[in-house]
């Protein structure tokens, strides 16, 4: 099933996240990730939702989201015209012999080491999904203690913007 990235502007109110996530579970839509945060307007939040489904399901998802009173606008982001990023923190098991080579890979990936302990290194990396997956795969042989990922967040490229909220 095809992957789609939806950018959803919602009222920044309690209960909105529950309404949106509840909609996906009760209608049986598959959701890969959902990230949410405040926008340039503190009354509006933006959710980036990654969903899987055919065109029919995607159309239903968009329509059902639009039906929610607190949803202001739903836009499907075109991968060619958008910047997709995800943040991951990866705690890698290291020892005296492996530490140097882990650091080397971290550098190649332009990631950062944000915490060092006797037997672990915590790496912060930002990128698209493929880059993070590749890094995780490489770290697997050293042993991964913990991973946390934010889920995808995205914006349209250039001067395109989802705006003029009162005119829509």
């Amino acid at each position: 099933m095809k992957r789609h990235v939806l950018s959803v502007l919602v009222e920044n109110q309690s209960g909105v996240l529950s309404r949106v996530s509840g909609l996906f579970s009760r209608r049986g839509y598959n959701i890969d990730s959902l990230s949410v945060g405040e926008t340039e307007d503190p009354k509006v939040s933006r959710m980036t939702i990654v969903v899987r489904g055919d065109d029919h399901i995607l159309e239903q998802i968009k329509k059902q989201l639009n039906k929610l009173i607190d949803v202001i606008k739903v836009v499907e982001l075109d991968p060619e015209q958008s910047v997709f990023r995800e943040l991951a923190l990866i705690k890698v098991k290291t020892n005296m012999t492996t530490r140097a080579s882990v650091i080397e890979i971290v550098d190649i990936f332009r990631a950062n080491i944000v915490d060092v302990a006797a037997d672990t290194l915590t790496v912060e990396m930002t990128g698209d999904e493929a880059k993070i997956e590749a890094f995780i795969a490489l770290m697997d042989s050293y042993g991964i203690a913990e991973i946390v990922r934010t889920g995808l967040t995205a914006l349209q490229r250039g001067n395109k913007a989802i705006k003029n909220l009162n005119e829509i």
Partner: peptide, 14 residues
């Protein structure tokens, strides 16, 4: 009750 009725109200307010 707003949580319980979420999927079958058109909208709700607490």
């Amino acid at each position: 009750i707003t949580g319980a009725t979420e999927s079958f109200t058109k909208h709700s307010y607490l």
